[in-house]
Amino acid sequence: MAVFDNEANSYDAWYESKLGKFVDKVEKECAFELFSPRKGMKVLDVGCGTGNYSIELAKMGCEVVGIDISDEMLDIAKNKAKENNLDIEFYNMDVYNIKFDDESFDAVFSMAAFEFIKEPEKAIEEIFRVVKKDGQVLIGTINKKSAWGELYLSEEFQKNSIFKYAQFKTLDELKKLKSNYLVDTAECLFIPPNIDEKDISMEKEKDLSNMERGGFICVLWKK
């Protein structure tokens, strides 16, 4: 999809900044507190983008398949996997029409992609179709009801960024999806987006966790 293709070359650059590195660290910790990868597990990474989590999962010993709707993002992901000597399959594929058989995967993992999913009920049905019985489903996304959600919903971001195409969710909205299979939830990214660089720390993150909503939320289901 062209709109995401235009973001591909600059997407990873933000994660090289101090704030970007911190965000990546706390989001990964949040996800893997809930999600339990094991060696040999076959995992589908939905909305894999430039392969950040596909690579992380592969390094943990998982057999990873990444799907995304941006060829440019996928090209970068393929190159990064090759540079890391990792055997990861990447496909241009839509979450609403996942071209794999029923119960093909031990788990489905999706981080920072559900922001752009307009029909979450339809997407979660397709995700559950391809995951095996007793398989894990982990979704992580920006929390609409947080300082980060407010930033991305601000007039400036809605005019000048990819987030004009986003449809942000709250934790309660995610929990209503396949609620009978819900296992656990977690929040992170309590530091605000406008924090001074010198104040970025895990200590600050922990302090704010007692008084702020997490800017990023993760939800785990078990089929």
Rank of each mutant, 00 (worst) to 15 (best):
L34S: 10
P192D: 10
E119N: 15
A147I: 05
K122G: 06
L189F: 10
N52A: 13
I191F: 01
F163L: 08
V183P: 03
L57P: 00
Q167R: 14
Y53W: 12
S179C: 07
Y11P: 13
N143P: 07
E63A: 08
Q167Y: 08
K21N: 14
T141P: 09
A8Q: 11
T170H: 07
Q136I: 00
S17R: 12
E121Q: 13
V131D: 00
L138D: 01
G20L: 07
L19V: 01
F90Y: 15
N180S: 13
G51E: 02
Y53M: 08
K28L: 11
I200M: 05
I55T: 04
W148I: 05
D106Q: 06
E156W: 09
C30A: 12
K206E: 15
E83I: 05
N84D: 11
D134F: 05
K80T: 05
S201T: 12
S201F: 11
L151D: 03
G66N: 09
V95I: 15
K39S: 12
A58N: 05
K145V: 06
F109A: 00
F105E: 02
K133T: 10
A113I: 06
K132N: 04
K59D: 03
V219T: 14
I200V: 13
I139S: 04
G61R: 06
G135R: 01
D101G: 09
S179K: 14
L189R: 05
L208K: 03
N210S: 13
L189E: 05
I217F: 05
I98P: 02
F216S: 09
E203F: 04
L86I: 09
I67Q: 07
L220I: 11
S110C: 08
F216Y: 15
A77E: 01
L171Q: 04
Y91V: 10
E121G: 04
G215M: 04
I124R: 02
E27A: 04
I55W: 08
D196G: 02
M111W: 03
A166R: 00
Q136L: 12
D106G: 07
L171T: 01
I67Y: 10
A113Y: 01
P192L: 08
E72L: 04
E89M: 07
N92E: 09
G214H: 00
K178M: 10
C48I: 07
G47L: 02
M93G: 03
E115M: 09
K223M: 01
N52Y: 05
Y91A: 12
S161R: 00
G215F: 09
F190V: 04
K164L: 03
M1D: 05
E203M: 07
D71G: 10
M41V: 06
D196L: 14
G51M: 03
N79P: 00
N194I: 03
S10L: 12
E212S: 07
A81Q: 03
I88L: 06
I88G: 00
T185K: 03
L57W: 00
Y11H: 11
